[in-house]
Computed example of a mutant assay.
Amino acid sequence: MKEGLRKVLVIDDEASIRKLLRVSLEANGYDVVEAVNGREGLVETASQRPDLLLLDLGLPDMTGLAVLSEVRSWSQVPVIVLTVQDSDQDKISALDGGADDYVTKPFSVPELLVRMRVALRHAGQSLQEKSELISGPVRVDVPGHTVTVNGELVKLTVTEFNILKVLIKNKGKVVTHRMLLNEVWGPNSVEHTHYLRVYVGGLRKKLHVREDLPEIIATEAGVGYRLLDL
């Protein structure tokens, strides 16, 4: 490993993708290790101890989801999956299986770099231990059960507060419909996505207290929601 650099393991069977990632990531100060299939990726994850995995879901010897499942049985290393277009179910399965984020092929390198920075930053934080959670102008006082936006108190219902708490603990990451429903309403409500549309819509309006402030909750179509890491 190059001294002081974050190590990224790329698990992808396409040589052109690996080359693109190696050149792009090394130019941005990362140390890059490659694996051409799932089994090799698991060996390299165990031996190299990378700081982050870039995992293609379409591997030749085993599925990317199987690799993710095995990694998650013994490691919490940040994982960003690489998916093809129009594969919402793969994205959902990967996120529910423990992936930190996803990018869609063909992907934008600048967008990937942002996703990587967020995943690495999130991995280094212990948000669950904090009594105050912050993202840009939004501050959530967990024990006080209060929310302010740019210093202004915003009154939320219990459900809206619980949704925001889950989103802000995972700021910058996609939270799937299933994950949110399970956290807020329990496992018997994971199919009731219409609940979320109503409550997230109301939450968006309450958080958007001034026209000059950005919308902070982004919709990941067909997948879930992402609270922007402002």
Rank of each mutant, 00 (worst) to 15 (best):
V118L: 02
L113H: 11
A94W: 03
H208P: 10
K169H: 13
L180G: 00
V184A: 03
H145C: 12
V140F: 03
R121A: 04
A221R: 15
N150F: 03
G202D: 09
L113N: 07
L112W: 02
A123V: 11
G201Q: 11
D212F: 08
Y102H: 07
E191Q: 15
E183H: 10
D100I: 01
N150L: 04
N182G: 12
K165T: 06
H194D: 10
V114M: 06
R204V: 12
V109D: 03
K171P: 00
S135L: 07
P143R: 15
L95R: 00
V184G: 01
A119P: 01
W185K: 12
T176F: 04
V198K: 15
D212T: 09
G151R: 07
W185S: 05
N188Q: 14
G224T: 04
L156A: 06
V154I: 10
L196K: 14
L127T: 01
K130P: 02
E111S: 13
D101L: 00
L203E: 03
K173H: 11
I163M: 12
P106N: 14
V109S: 05
T148C: 08
L112T: 03
I216F: 04
T104I: 14
Q128R: 13
L156G: 02
G224N: 04
D96W: 01
G98W: 06
T219M: 11
G186D: 05
L164S: 05
Q125L: 14
D96Q: 11
V142A: 04
E160H: 09
V109C: 09
V184E: 02
I134G: 00
L207G: 04
R115K: 15
V200L: 01
D141S: 04
G224A: 05
V175G: 00
T157S: 14
G186H: 07
G124R: 10
T104Q: 05
T159W: 04
G201K: 14
T176N: 03
V190Y: 13
G144F: 10
A119N: 05
V174L: 03
R121D: 09
V147P: 08
L95W: 01
E211I: 12
Q125P: 03
E183R: 12
H122M: 05
K165I: 00
Y102G: 02
S189F: 13
S189H: 14
H192S: 13
L153A: 13
G186W: 08
G224R: 06
G202W: 13
R197W: 12
E129D: 15
T219R: 15
K173Y: 01
V184D: 02
P187K: 13
V175T: 09
N162G: 08
P187M: 11
A218H: 14
N182K: 15
M179T: 10
F161L: 10
A123Y: 09
V223T: 08
E129V: 13
P143D: 15
S131Y: 11
V118S: 00
G124K: 09
E129K: 14
H192Q: 15
K130Q: 15
P187Y: 08
L167I: 09
R178E: 05
